[in-house]
């Protein structure tokens, strides 16, 4: 079943007199349960594409359909709800709140969503266990290693039981051993039925995904 349908997506940035075409008529679809890696050289539009898929930014033209619903027609409130309940974000910089401990950081999205899916301690412990950070539950971020911090961030992305995960270079700040671990974790999420779309520079890691979309100068050169 199709989860995401992207049609003729174009994004033009205007910088003074100059215009930059970050995305140029990009079209593709992603099915439920797919593991997609988006690769391409720096400046090719990967982050721009991910932001539009994540309902953080709007395209100049074209449309994104999530579960057959056009994102362009949604208001701010509907977009907030999509971000809360359908999408899990993972960032290159982790962005954990330093004063909150691991479990509090992970529960943060529940505060914003109001926890409509009634997620309880049991599920929280399950993801912590899966990610190998159960023992770190009450630690502050500064007491964790980079790999652990990113696993906390993944747990945070999973807490609202999203349909898909968007990750922008989640391993850029990690060594290769930890990077592979993170990709293996993402793979296990896919096995559980979650769709994962991950941006990476690293070809070796990208080959761990089932499918690869290559971008260059805002265009898809292979899917």
């Amino acid at each position: 079943m199709t989860l995401l349908k992207i049609e003729n997506l174009t994004k033009i940035y205007i910088r003074g007199a100059e215009t930059v075409k970050a995305l140029d008529s990009v079209s593709f679809s992603v099915n439920n349960g797919e593991f997609v890696a988006i690769t391409g050289p720096s400046g090719s539009g990967k982050t721009t594409l991910l932001h539009i898929l994540g309902c953080l930014d709007r395209p100049t033209s074209g449309e994104v359909y999530i579960d057959d619903k056009a994102v362009g027609k949604m208001n701010d409130k509907e977009l907030d709800n999509i971000r809360r309940l359908k999408i899990g974000f993972i960032f290159q910089q982790f962005y954990l709140l330093p004063e909150l401990n691991v479990i509090e950081n992970i529960k943060l999205p529940l505060l914003f969503s109001g926890n409509p899916k009634k997620i309880g301690e049991e599920y929280l412990n399950e993801i912590l266990d899966t990610l190998g950070i159960l023992k770190r539950k009450n630690h502050k971020p500064k007491e964790l290693s980079g790999g652990e911090m990113q696993r906390v961030a993944i747990a945070r992305a999973l807490v609202n039981k999203p349909e898909f995960i968007l990750a922008d270079e989640p391993t850029a700040n990690l060594d290769s051993e930890n990077s592979i671990k993170i990709f293996e974790l993402l793979k296990r999420l896919v096995e559980k039925g979650i769709t994962v779309i991950v941006v990476t520079h690293n070809n070796e890691l990208a080959s761990l995904a089932e499918r690869r979309i290559k971008l260059k100068d805002g265009r898809i050169i292979s899917t």
């Binding site: 994540g54 953080l56 409130k77 907030d80 971000r83 809360r84 309940l85 899990g88 974000f89 960032f91 910089q93 962005y95 709140l97 943060l108 999205p109 505060l111 914003f112 969503s113 945070r156 992305a157 609202n160």
Partner: peptide, 16 residues
């Protein structure tokens, strides 16, 4: 700034 942006991305509304 970045943290607030992150919170918005993971579902915080402007009111939050």
């Amino acid at each position: 700034t970045q943290e607030i942006g992150m919170m918005r991305a993971i579902g915080a509304s402007r009111a939050h």
